[in-house]
Write a protein that binds this DNA or RNA. Sequence first.
DNA 1: AGCATCAATGCAAAGCTTTGCGGAAGACAA
DNA 2: TTGTCTTCCGCAAAGCTTTGCATTGATGCT
Lengths: 338, 338
Amino acid sequence: MSKRHTSLKDLALELGVSISTVSRALKNHPDISPELTKKIRALAEERNYSPNPLAMGLLRQQTKMIGVIVPDINTHFYSSIISGIEKVAKERGYFIVISSSNESMQKEIESVENLLKSRVEGFIVCLSQETSQFKHFEKLVENEIPLVFFDRICENIEAPAVSANGQDATKKITQHFYENGCRRIAYISGPEHLNISQNRKVGYLNGLKECGLEFDPNLLINCNLSIEEAKLATKILLDLDEKPDAIFGINDTIAFAAMIEVKKQGYKIPEDISLAGFTDEFHSIVVDPPLTSVSHPTFEMGEEAAKLFFESVEQKKNIKKQVILPIDLVVRASSKKK
Amino acid sequence: MSKRHTSLKDLALELGVSISTVSRALKNHPDISPELTKKIRALAEERNYSPNPLAMGLLRQQTKMIGVIVPDINTHFYSSIISGIEKVAKERGYFIVISSSNESMQKEIESVENLLKSRVEGFIVCLSQETSQFKHFEKLVENEIPLVFFDRICENIEAPAVSANGQDATKKITQHFYENGCRRIAYISGPEHLNISQNRKVGYLNGLKECGLEFDPNLLINCNLSIEEAKLATKILLDLDEKPDAIFGINDTIAFAAMIEVKKQGYKIPEDISLAGFTDEFHSIVVDPPLTSVSHPTFEMGEEAAKLFFESVEQKKNIKKQVILPIDLVVRASSKKK
DNA sequence: AGCATCAATGCAAAGCTTTGCGGAAGACAA
DNA sequence: TTGTCTTCCGCAAAGCTTTGCATTGATGCT
């Protein structure tokens, strides 16, 4: 088994001084004579001393751990956000413990419990698509445990949150389609209770309105975020008597699924049907035709979430603060008619 | 700030017994009378007691943390492996701390140091593509700190490792191309010093030999794993007097890049040039044409790596054990000539 | 010489848990 | 009554660090 790390005690013993002296010397405390300080620091250097975080944690009552709960860790969207969180966490000497809810509320609840047992100091979470009750988060807020949401957020909980401006984005997409000649613009959305679904729907409706188009309920489909359901939704849209001439999905996965289905049925993109996605995964570029998409500032979103987290920690309470990040429409071939 | 977790002391105080009694009662120690045990357990339940991992760690000299170092966390390949590691780690009550080297040796070295300071009990790592010196890992082995490599491994270090059978895979791809009529099969490989590059090259050469094709050095290009270099490599291949009629890349990203370049130059896939990748990211399916690829058992790879890790921990020494996972060739449209 | 001051260190507690060992109290035999 | 077992529980140490307070020896001042 790995050799023990050297402790203050080891150094103290070797130098024949007390532990507290060593501790002070290492922080250049003026009480300790310069020569002794020098000697101690030299030995510490040589022995490669670094303070034991467990002991420190015990003393200071802090673990320097942040619990991060995401629906899924294998998607670029989340892993990129995680990178952002990790960056600022590292800067502050914190590290993150990642737990995946797999889009299941049950697992999400378990994650909260387990992370709590591990004594994380707080949470940064993106709701699972199933999550419709929030007791497990309310309990955190009651106990004044820092909590920040990102992307999929819960409006009813007194917690800071970061999200992207989905409303603006869907409006822009809708208008973009309109400007490219589309008149029957369909939208495949996510589970209805998710705030992102709602926001984006609002943007979609506003966009239609501004373009002078009437909303046709047939053109709005809610589906869960799986490929299968998205294909099914696409099929339904394509089976309509009055088919859509544009489809956009609430994320790129949905859009990819739609693309597969649209192609399979022999429609040309974008001539027959324009397409747009909503996250701008790397692969949007490589797909054929390249997918028009709304690029999320994922890394920044992670950074922002982490910053909010530390604000909460410092203020010693959850601030109700919403950061809304702007998003960009990246137009590619899948939506350019001409 | 979050309320303190309840400790044994809290329970002891409230019940007027000693801390040790509470501790024993909670583990059903026979020394404690059944009634008292029951009372203590009831209160513990009510107060939601859970042992403080910091204190336990201090006592047992273990942090239950595994340091995981990957070249990049945003790729499906790695995040999937991480999921696998995380699964078995969680089963054993461990959690993982992820650090990304960003393909830089310097960052990798720093990661090792930082994680060591955080007192991780050991490491599971995939080498950065830059890494050509191994002192930082040798030091771990000397200090008997558990270490396991995956995917990109270092043969010279006495540490267990998991990898996929890249040699077999490249041989199969080569033969597959041959059976589909290709005679000038090109291979865009990774940095030469990486063991995966070497293995896959061997498989490529063996494949050629078995097919009775001669090896043309012009058709083998080493590049770093960036999209830009891969496009460049593809360009070089396409500029050859005797152009290749098949290209495969050491991973899907490379293959995607090649696909972009090949299309850009107006070649048809697979009619003019067949293509194959090497990791089978989700998006292989959605790309056009769908990409033939070698599917890696990424999740299993992670599981296996974690299992090896715990073997090391238990045996209290690094075993030199290599696990080689089989891989499957998934044939799609990008390589089927007819 | 005697007291005050100051510089340089050490002591010990706290944070939380586990566990070997010692201790108290009651039961029972002699 | 005394001695011997049980049964049930508490003490204390260890693991590591920080920090308020105490201690020691020396020097300065009167």
